[in-house]
Amino acid sequence: MKLISGVLDFDHVVAAIQKGQRLVISADESLLSKLPKGNWLGGTTPYFMAASGGTFSKDRAFVQELSPMATDLRFSWYSDATISSVYNDASENGFSFILIPAFAKIHLTFGLKAPEFGNFGVRPLVGWVAGTQLENLGVVAAKVYNGQTLESKSDEAIVLHATLPESHFADVNIVNIFETSNSQDELEFLTDGFEVERVKVSGKQRDFAGYIAEKKADIRWPLVGDYGGASVNLSFAGIDGGKVKLLAPVFAGVKYRLASPAGDYNAYLKAFQAKMSGFEKQEVGFSCNCVLNYKHGDLHGKIIPELHGPFVFGEIAYQLLNQTAVVMTICPR
């Protein structure tokens, strides 16, 4: 049986909910707020990578159906005060799916503190940060939904905990198309945070905003954290006076470099295709991509065949990251 994973109009979303299908629904608030009760959770974003290409739509939704192997579904709200137990509450063998409203306090807390929470790295957590039409970011609040109760919130995260049979497990992967060059300076930050003033450049302290200006760095491209075998991207939100604002936090002690420019759509397509090879033979349980890849890669109307899902405002693969695609596969043991 083929699971739903694609763009549906309102009537088809309603029909899928009424059939009892278990769904993750990405759509504009105007659509999500009209859906009936059912086994679904949702978050606001009007941007999707559909089979027909990058799409902006307020009257259609990107719908992902959960694997039939997922059982014992538990929907829970998490506040800024309770998010620290999100991994502890997960099933021993399963996965958890989280949707967080952008710029809520819980977004910042999760971004900064998740790696210290109990069972981080032990129990798989994937998901994304909900947003709005890019022009309305910070003006219109992002929302996340519990379809079982039809509650929506702008200040809490909705989490779906699911259990998998002993025969299978969830594997979380990131697809990062950005590269760094050893000729780029190695950067370290003095404190953890979403806002940065000081940086150590190859061991020497200075102001980060001045460094970016001096290097004529294009802040459409992310900062890339060196996590050994994984590169973790953080996007620039802007520079305000002497403060460099980021969409995910830097961590003191981690080494960063500015990403090399990603190029145009063709470069994005080539990079994603190269990095997505291998997933086509697996059961993809969930995928999403960053709205900044949609924007800066000029992906509207363009196809990335291997990678369908919502474009979102922060990706979660265990921890918060940016300008990255996240893919969760369900694998046999």
Binding site: F120, N173, Y227, G229, G253, V254
Partner: peptide, 24 residues
């Protein structure tokens, strides 16, 4: 120190953090 490169995503994340914490 942090010269290890793991295939498993979460190990890269956890290892980086614990090595920094061990240095401190």
């Amino acid at each position: 120190g942090g010269q290890q490169s793991f295939e498993f995503l979460a190990l890269n994340m956890v290892f980086t953090r614990v090595v920094i914490a061990a240095k401190r």
